Simulated assay, not measured.
Amino acid sequence: MSIRKILTFPHPILRLKAEPITVFDEELHTLVQDMVDTMHAAPGVGLAANQIGIPRQLVVVDNSTVDNERAYLALVNPRITAGEGSMVDEEGCLSVVECFAKVKRFRKIHVTAQDMEGNPLQFDAEDRFARIIQHEVDHLLGTLFIDHLSTLKRALYKKKLKKILQEQEMEQQ
């Protein structure tokens, strides 16, 4: 399969609401495998399709264990239908360069989705696994984790990003 380019903020596709997937075919399987390869190469623990420029409701989440180092879960058209409790922990994002911040999320969630064949899925997720799923589902809604930060922290990040982008532009000249 292939590793795709991960789009970074402020790319406009990251702000689009992803479209539902209605066709479950070999092309979808290839996309999922490309996303998994891209996620592991980054390295990351989750990836939404719009992060690689495809505004479709698809996420992959790393659920590796000691026994299975490269396991993943593909969620098609995922929805978080319930949430309870809360926890604050640090997050980063493959699409938000050089930014890590504490974000409040549900501690436990109920997820409904489809698998790659179109079969319904339903499960509960807790703690870190729940955090990753919430982060990725946010992407499908056009929301980045920095949107959960205070106005001040978001403004400071945008200022930092502007400087990073200017430095990259100068290096390319």
Rank of each mutant, 00 (worst) to 15 (best):
Y157Q: 03
V36H: 02
D37E: 14
V36E: 02
D124H: 10
D115W: 09
V97H: 02
Q166F: 01
G46C: 13
T81G: 05
V137F: 06
T143M: 07
M1Q: 15
E169K: 15
R70T: 14
L165K: 11
H139L: 09
P55S: 15
P12G: 11
K153M: 03
C99W: 00
K5Y: 11
Q172P: 00
Q168I: 00
K5F: 12
T22A: 09
T22L: 11
A130M: 06
T81M: 05
V45L: 14
R56F: 01
D115Y: 05
H139C: 09
C93I: 02
V137H: 04
D89H: 09
A130S: 12
Q168A: 08
I13K: 15
L140E: 05
L152R: 08
A42G: 12
L31M: 15
Q122R: 14
K162I: 01
V103T: 13
R128K: 09
L141H: 15
P43W: 03
E171D: 11
D67A: 11
D124R: 09
I21T: 00
H139S: 08
A48K: 14
A42W: 06
K158H: 08
L58H: 01
V66N: 00
P78C: 06
N119F: 01
V76E: 13
G92M: 03
A130D: 08
V32S: 11
S2P: 07
R154C: 04
V32N: 08
Q57W: 02
L144Y: 00
V137A: 09
L94K: 03
Q168K: 12
L75N: 11
L152C: 00
T30V: 12
G53M: 10
M87H: 06
E126S: 11
Q173V: 13
E167P: 01
L140H: 06
E69C: 03
E19P: 00
F123Q: 03
A74G: 07
K104L: 14
A18L: 07
E19C: 00
T112S: 03
S150A: 02
K162H: 10
M39V: 07
V59M: 13
P20F: 10
Q172D: 13
Q166G: 13
A82L: 04
Q134D: 05
R107F: 06
L152G: 00
E27Q: 14
I133E: 07
D147L: 03
I80E: 04
L16Q: 15
C99R: 13
F129E: 04
A125H: 11
F24K: 10
V103K: 04
E126L: 06
M35I: 01
M1A: 15
D138R: 04
Y157G: 02
T8G: 07
K160R: 04
L140W: 05
I54R: 14
M170E: 12
V96M: 06
M87I: 12
E91F: 00
L141Q: 14
D124E: 15
E136I: 01
D67Q: 10
Q134K: 06
E126P: 00
Y157D: 04
M170V: 08
V60I: 13
L152Q: 04
I109M: 09
R154M: 03
E136Q: 12
F145L: 05
E84I: 00
I21W: 02
E136D: 09
D147V: 09
I133S: 05
F24I: 10
